[in-house]
Design a protein around this nucleic acid. Structure first.
Length: 197
DNA sequence: TATACGATGCACT
DNA sequence: GTGCATCGTATAG
């Protein structure tokens, strides 16, 4: 299988643009020659300015440091004592922005994802940010990981027209909860893989 | 040092 | 639909 990685320039643009264009892209991780991949179908943008919900909103700290790097790396953080969430850092150094991957449609490596998730139902392998990170085995150690690497990267997969995309409020946050920064693919093939709520 | 709480998921009613 | 486990991080003292 040949992979054509998205270029670094893809990530180093406005966060809202990247969040929208990530829909339909294939997220790929290669573990010991085994390919895990899933089509990104739901994202949330966390902006570098005027966005109190963004982890980078106040200042640079130990946790949010990856968000202040140049776009094109992972920001993986631990939440609720149980879960990891994977973000794709956007824009350029010093700004503090990222896109949360909320859900994806599994494409390759289903069996390994099921193992990582604990033999869960196919439609629930990546249908939420914590589930996605668990299915791909993304953990603390992948924080700062480059998406230009040989083991974790993105490729083109599907293209969607704007009329197939829905934009809504972000989920699970208490501040800036009304901003329309969540994007998902509204399509019969993908809707059943979207996170609930 | 101490404390409060979260970009969730799952079990249970 | 509701309740809560669980712990690293931010923030205050």
């Amino acid at each position: 299988m040949e992979f054509n990685k998205l270029p670094i320039e893809f990530y180093q643009r406005e966060t809202v643009t990247v969040a929208r264009e990530l829909l339909g892209k294939l997220f790929v991780r290669i573990i010991d020659g085994q390919i895990l991949s899933a089509e990104i179908i739901e994202t949330e943008a966390y902006l570098p300015a005027n966005d109190p919900a963004c982890h980078a909103a106040n200042r640079k700290t130990t946790r949010n440091a990856p968000m202040f790097e140049d776009g094109g790396i992972l920001y993986v953080y631990f939440i609720y004592g149980n879960h990891y969430c994977a973000n794709i850092v956007t824009e350029t150094k010093g700004l503090g922005a990222a896109v949360l991957i909320r859900s994806a449609k599994p494409v390759q490596g289903i069996e390994m994802m099921q193992n990582n998730r604990g033999n869960q139902d196919f439609f629930n392998l990546c249908s939420g940010p914590g589930k996605f990170a668990q299915a791909f085995g993304l953990r603390r150690e992948h924080n700062f990981h480059s998406l230009m690497s040989e083991t974790i990267f993105l490729t083109d997969f599907n293209e969607y027209n704007d009329n197939e995309i829905v934009i809504t409020k972000r989920i699970g946050i208490k501040v800036a909860a009304d901003l329309p920064l969540r994007f998902y693919v509204n399509n019969p093939e993908t809707l059943k893989f979207i996170s609930k709520k």
